[in-house]
């Protein structure tokens, strides 16, 4: 393909967008390097008035919890995303096939749960009493494996693959499984990477099930620890209104500590991003394979 020069306006737009996205990020990072007194006095800014490491020193004074948190988060992200993408791609492939007789029925079946859910109480009863998932890392993985959005996204993508490809394979005597894994999935790396990335991001950020079901400290994902810290502040303020006992300043982490934990939480996910990105930009297209 002929190389074209990208117009300057396009670059300008993206540079502006990049600035709008990066600057707020710096605000958070700089806040984590400011001491809490300065934060109270001057508020958040792009550069810290003077660099201060107390927040990080405090976080890593006792790193066991953070290391455990990382381990759990990485495990649920990797295992969950892998299983989820494989299962969803299989289903999406079947739903995209015109010769599948239960296509309509199953589409409805998969879609319906996004509209109706039974609520927290019934899920909790099932997960704890019938599936015995209390305090198991699997409760952080299994319930979220199917994202209906992503199934439909994959289906839409598979539908766009030319039928001729499948017909040719069928004539060669390939079964549906083989077509699914050797043709459909192979040709869809950009969308699989997209779905995997979206799934990984939401798993990385998930904390709610950990709050409900996990009991032992060493099984808490990192994001839960962050969320707990943030929500505890709300609760302690609420408590101060009702109970005359003094809440000591040490019980409420300063804003710099909150921001530092936030940075610690998102850091690694940003390292993973380029790994997925490889597939976004590769331009692995149907046309390229066909030719």
């Amino acid at each position: 393909m002929k190389k074209e020069k990208t117009s300057l306006i396009v670059h300008l737009i993206f540079i502006l967008l990049a600035i709008a996205c990066v600057v707020p990020f710096f605000i958070v990072i700089s806040a984590s390097f400011t001491n809490s007194q300065d934060l109270a006095l001057y508020g958040f800014s792009i550069l810290p008035p003077k660099v201060d490491f107390t927040a990080y020193a405090y976080l890593f004074e006792n790193p066991r919890q953070i290391i455990n948190g990382y381990a759990v988060t990485i495990f649920i992200t990797v295992a969950g995303t892998f299983l989820s993408v494989v299962f969803m791609a299989m289903a999406a492939y079947a739903l995209a096939r015109q010769n599948f007789k239960f296509r309509k029925l199953l589409t409805g079946y998969i879609f319906f749960p996004t509209l109706f859910n039974g609520g927290l109480v019934s899920s909790y009863i099932i997960n704890t009493q019938y599936l015995h998932l209390t305090d198991s890392v699997w409760v952080l993985i299994l319930p979220g494996l199917v994202n209906v959005f992503h199934v439909f996204m994959l289906r839409t993508f598979f539908k766009q693959l030319p039928d001729g490809l499948f017909d040719a394979a069928m004539i060669d005597g390939a079964g549906e499984w083989r077509i699914c894994f050797t043709i459909a999935i192979r040709l869809s790396k950009p969308v699989l990477a997209t779905v995997a990335f979206l799934g990984a991001l939401s798993r990385w950020n998930s904390w709610y099930n950990a709050m409900l079901y996990i009991r032992s400290e060493e099984k808490y994902p990192l994001q839960y620890l962050l969320q707990r810290m943030m929500n505890n502040i709300q609760e302690l303020l609420n408590q101060m209104e009702h109970v005359p006992s003094m809440v000591s300043a040490a019980d409420i982490p300063g804003e710099n500590l909150r921001m530092a934990l936030l940075v610690v939480c998102i850091g690694p996910m940003m390292i993973f991003f380029p790994f997925f990105q490889k597939y976004f930009t590769k331009g692995m297209t149907v046309g390229a394979v066909k030719g």
């Binding site: 010769n99 239960f102 199917v146």
Partner: peptide, 27 residues
Amino acid sequence: ENIQLGMLTLPVVALLAIFSYWPMFGV
């Protein structure tokens, strides 16, 4: 073919049955 395709959807169907349809009684 339909059996093969059906098997492909099985994990998703089962997961939804357990984690989405079963709790619906909570309504």
